[in-house]
Simulated scan of single mutants.
Amino acid sequence: MLEYRGFESFCSAYFYSPNWWQKMLSFLLLPFSLIYCFISRLKFSFSSSQKDLGILVFSVGNLVVGGSGKSPLCKAIYSFFNEMSEYKNAVFIVLRGYRRKSKGCVVVSQKGEILVPCDISGDEAMDYAINGANVIVSEDREAGILKAKELGAKIVILDDGFRHFGIKKFDILLKPFSRPACDFCLPSGAYRLPKSFYALANFIPDDSDIVRNSRILYPTERMVLVSGIANPSRLNKHYGNCVAHYHFSDHYDFSAAELKEILKKHAATSLLVTSKDYAKIKDFGIPVSVIKLELNLSQNFKNILLKYTKSF
Results as ranks from 00 to 15, higher is better:
G122H: 02
K302C: 14
N300E: 07
L42W: 14
R5G: 15
L271N: 00
L271F: 05
D123K: 02
K282G: 04
Q50Y: 05
E113I: 14
Y252R: 13
S40E: 10
L30H: 15
V273I: 14
E142D: 10
K280I: 04
F284A: 02
F58P: 03
S227I: 07
I291S: 09
C242A: 08
F248K: 05
S40V: 10
M126S: 01
F38L: 08
R192D: 06
K302L: 04
Y78S: 01
G66D: 01
F27T: 15
S102C: 11
A148G: 03
F301G: 04
K280Q: 05
I155Y: 00
E83S: 15
N82Y: 01
F254D: 11
S249F: 07
K260Y: 06
K149Q: 11
P180R: 07
G132H: 01
S71T: 14
L34N: 13
I281V: 10
R100F: 12
F80C: 00
K175H: 02
S33H: 12
M84L: 13
A201M: 06
A230M: 13
I77Q: 01
L297N: 06
L174S: 03
P176H: 06
S17M: 04
D123S: 07
S214M: 13
L28W: 14
I167V: 11
K149V: 04
A76P: 04
I55G: 00
V224A: 13
A190Q: 09
H266T: 07
D160A: 01
G152H: 01
L259W: 01
D277L: 07
F162V: 03
D209H: 12
R179D: 13
S270E: 05
V106Y: 00
F312V: 08
H164T: 10
K260R: 12
V116K: 03
N82Q: 01
K147E: 08
V288P: 00
N82K: 02
S188M: 14
I229T: 13
R100C: 15
